[in-house]
């Protein structure tokens, strides 16, 4: 391409380099540092090697949290992606209603995360909450502070409510970029709506859906604020996801070493899954 060679250009990227260093590299290095040492909270450290990692990887508590995390992420992906696509398909593609729909869709995304947690917390209260009260008056025994199933249902409903919009907006962006000629050609070829979806809309949405799945995976895998506000990981540890578990270990018990090891393992899982997923998607793209 057309480049003008000038070494002063490097100065322009300095702020980003500094920002990344402060934001990511230094904290990460601190965590790495903690994960291989033992401390008793008096700022004295002892080398402990991979002890913490071994402990974490064998810890049933970690296994439990990881299992719950995988279940949570898997469930919300299975609901949000198809639901988001379905909603995007029903949205108008031109006219005055387009902007109305888009604004409505964007609303949940604009609400701060802790507020989302608080909203659902109140709404789901069995006695006075709109949702909780309605369910109970319909004869459904619902109490998210006491029953794990209720807690899970509320947690997933909250996430679906909060984040499906993102999938909708991405899928919608993919849909509107399909030239009208494709639909016309499909009509002429006598394609049924399912065939139009399968052979035109879905392939053309693939790119944005890849991004949607990736974003939703990473986000939901690291979710903290909303479940923490809503259930605090309870009842018992039934909704203690990885991040909540991590905070309990690190700040509740001040086990810095195991907490650091857990977060590194956690970080590596997110990184590895995202990378595998991305590579697979790109590979099918090329073939």
């Amino acid at each position: 391409m057309n480049k003008t060679a000038d070494n002063r250009a490097w100065l322009l990227v300095t702020p980003v380099v500094l920002l990344v260093a402060f934001n990511a590299l230094i904290p990460l290095m601190t965590v790495v540092n903690y994960s291989v040492q033992e401390t008793f909270g008096d700022n004295t450290f002892f080398w402990s090697g991979v002890t913490w990692f071994e402990q974490v990887l064998r810890d049933p508590r970690f296994h439990g949290a990881l299992g719950r995390q995988l279940f949570f992420t898997g469930t919300i992906l299975l609901i949000e992606i198809p639901l988001g696509v379905a909603i995007a398909l029903t949205m108008p593609r031109r006219g005055t209603w387009v902007s109305v729909c888009l604004v409505l869709m964007a609303l949940p995304l604009l609400i701060p995360w802790n507020v989302v947690g608080a909203m659902w917390n109140i709404m789901a209260l069995p006695d006075i909450g709109l949702l909780g009260h309605t369910l109970n008056s319909m004869g459904i025994d619902y109490n998210y502070t006491r029953q794990p199933v209720s807690a899970w249902v509320t947690l997933i409903a909250m996430d679906v409510w909060h984040w499906t919009s993102l999938v909708v907006l991405l899928a919608y962006a993919g849909l509107v970029s399909i030239p009208e000629a494709y639909y016309q050609a499909a009509k002429i070829d006598g394609a049924k709506p399912w065939a139009v979806f399968r052979y035109i809309q879905l392939p053309k949405m693939k790119r944005v859906l890849t991004i949607a799945v990736l974003l939703r995976f990473m986000d939901s895998f690291m979710i903290y604020t909303e479940p923490s506000v809503l259930t605090g990981g309870g009842p018992g540890s039934s909704t203690t996801l990885l991040s909540i578990d991590l905070v309990k270990t690190a700040l509740g018990q001040f086990d810095l070493g195991p907490a650091a090891a857990t977060s590194l393992v956690y970080f590596l899982i997110v990184l590895a899954v995202s990378w595998i997923f991305y590579t697979l998607m790109m590979r099918t793209e090329e073939s």
Binding site: A181, I188, K192, A195, Y199, P203, K204
Partner: peptide, 30 residues
Amino acid sequence: EARNIAQVFQFPVVYDTMSVYDNIAFPLRN
């Protein structure tokens, strides 16, 4: 589709995920 006509557009329209064979067979399968 009720008129039974065919059209070739300004910008090529093909079903990307299908083979050339499946593309040509598509209207018949429909």
